[in-house]
Structures are given as C-alpha cells and as structure tokens.
Nucleic acid binder design. Sequence first.
DNA 1: CGATTGACGTACG
DNA 2: TCGTACGCCAATC
Length: 116
Amino acid sequence: MKDQPGDSDFFRDVYDVVRLIPYGRVSSYGAIARYLGAARSSRMVGWAMNASHGLLPPVPAHRVVNRIGVLSGRHHFSDESEMQRLLESEGVKVENYQVADFETLFWNPNVELVPD
DNA sequence: CGATTGACGTACG
DNA sequence: TCGTACGCCAATC
C-alpha cells in the first residue's frame, strides 16, 4: 500500500498545498514548487499531480495550471473537458482551455500561506 | 543500468 | 518580443 509512486515527502507536500487552494482559485506548478523550496522542480509537481488520481482526500488538480493559466493537464483527466468543467463549476471562467483573469484568480502560496 | 519522457519554468540569442 | 535550449528529478522503456 506504500509502494505507490509519490510516497516521498515532497509529493505529499505538493498534495497538501494543492488541497489548500481555495474554492474558485487557481495556482501554478512553479508557484507550488517554489513554495516547497524546489523552484526548479516544477516538473515534479506535475508528475505528482499525475500520481494524485484516486488519492484521498482528493486533490483538486484541476485548480493547478501552468504559469500562463493554460490547462496543460487537461489531457490527463478522464476527459479533456473535465478539467475545464470543474473550473467553471467553481466559478472560474475558462476560455479555449485557458483561465480568464488568471492573474486575479491566481493563488500564490508564497504569499497567501506566508504570514508577513 | 543507460536513455528518454514529462500536467514546467527560466535563461539566452 | 519571440523562438530555442537547458535544467530539474522521478518514472518508464
């Protein structure tokens, strides 16, 4: 039961941060990676997301997009439109697989989770 | 065990 | 400003 991929503390830490993303907000892989002290390991965040399927509690991977607000991980969901549908369900407007007002909805853990 | 890939991001020309 | 190259590190082939 522990032979699953992403058993490292880094992966669990990624999941923890992603779960902290507020409803109707989005974040980026690089922001999360940087928050964990691995600014150059943004790819690992995406890899962690790939292994986040079926985890409990569920990880809102649909709230995580790349630095330009594009739903780069849509293809890894059950359906490509699933990720966009989930975001729109939370009030996040998505156009052409890209988050509208991304800068406004962007949730930066380095700012929101760091008191002062 | 070596090479390639990948839900990214930054650096450089 | 835009396009290309590289780094990061785990998982897969």
